[in-house]
C-alpha cells in the first residue's frame, strides 16, 4: 500500500499509531458501555419493581421484527469484520461492496424499527403521546415502553452514525487504500460491533421476557 505521510510525530511507527487508535476506541467504547449501562440499570430496577408489567409489556413488542433485526445486525457485523480482515489494495473493490452491504443492512434495520414504532403507535403504546391499556398493570407497562423507546432510539442514533461512517470509509478507501484507511476502518468496525453487542442485550431485555406465559 503506498503511503505518503505515514504517521504523526508523536508515534514511533505505524503499529504504534494503530495500537494507540485501537486503545482510544476501547476507551470510547467504555464510555458508551456506561451510557447504555445507566439505562439497563434503570430497566432492572423497574423490572424488579414491576415484574408482571414488564412481562406484559414485552408481549406487546413484535418479536418477529426484533428477531429479524438481530439477524440483520449480526450479518452486518460479519460483513464489516470480513472487510477488515481482507482489506488491501488488491481487494479494494470487494471491501467497498462489503461496507456498502453492511450499511444497507443497517438501513434495513432502521426501516424495520420504523415499521415497529408505527405499529406500536397504532396500538396506543407510546407513553406521553397515546397510551391506552387496561389497569392494573398499565403503570408498569408504561415504564417498560419508556425504557423501550429511549433505549431503542439512542441505539438507532448510534446505528445512523455507524452507517455514515461505513459509507464514508467505503467511498474514501475504494481507490488506493492505505494503512491509514485500514486503521480508520478498524476503529469504525469496533464501534459497529459494539452497537451490535448493545442490541444483543436490548433484544434479550425487550423482546424475550414473558413469552413462555402467553
Amino acid at each position: 500500500m503506498p503511503e505518503p505521510p505515514v504517521f504523526a510525530s508523536q508515534y514511533v511507527s505505524i503499529p504504534h499509531r494503530d495500537h494507540s487508535a485501537e486503545l482510544g476506541m476501547w476507551v470510547f467504547i467504555a464510555t458508551e458501555i456506561l451510557l447504555f449501562g445507566g439505562l439497563i440499570l434503570a430497566y432492572f430496577v423497574y423490572r424488579h419493581a414491576f415484574p408482571q408489567a414488564f412481562a406484559e409489556g414485552s408481549q406487546h413488542t413484535d418479536i418477529l421484527i426484533g428477531t429479524i433485526n438481530t439477524a440483520v445486525l449480526l450479518t452486518s457485523s460479519f460483513l464489516v469484520a470480513w472487510a477488515v480482515e481482507i482489506f488491501s489494495a488488491a481487494t479494494a473493490k470487494i471491501v467497498t461492496w462489503l461496507l456498502v452491504g453492511a450499511a444497507c443492512l443497517g438501513l434495513a434495520f432502521i426501516a424495520l424499527k420504523g415499521i415497529e414504532y408505527r405499529k406500536e403507535y397504532h396500538e396506543h403504546l407510546i407513553p406521553g403521546i397515546d397510551f391506552q391499556l387496561a389497569r392494573p398493570l398499565a403503570n408498569g407497562v408504561q415504564l417498560f415502553f419508556v425504557f423501550y423507546l429511549i433505549a431503542t432510539a439512542i441505539h438507532a442514533v448510534h446505528m445512523l452514525i455507524g452507517i455514515c461512517l461505513l459509507l464514508t470509509l467505503a467511498i474514501i478507501s475504494r481507490r488506493a487504500p492505505t494503512t491509514r484507511h485500514h486503521t480508520a476502518l478498524h476503529s469504525a468496525a469496533l464501534y459497529w460491533h459494539f452497537v451490535d453487542v448493545v442490541w444483543i442485550f436490548l433484544f434479550a431485555l425487550i423482546y424475550l421476557p414473558g413469552r413462555a406465559a402467553s
Binding site: E22, W26, I29, E32, L41
Partner: peptide, 15 residues
C-alpha cells in the same frame, strides 16, 4: 488492549 477493553465492563459491574 484487554485491560482497556475490560475497563468498560469493570465500571459497568460497579454501576
Amino acid at each position: 488492549t484487554l485491560v482497556f477493553a475490560g475497563a468498560g465492563l469493570f465500571w459497568l459491574g460497579i454501576l
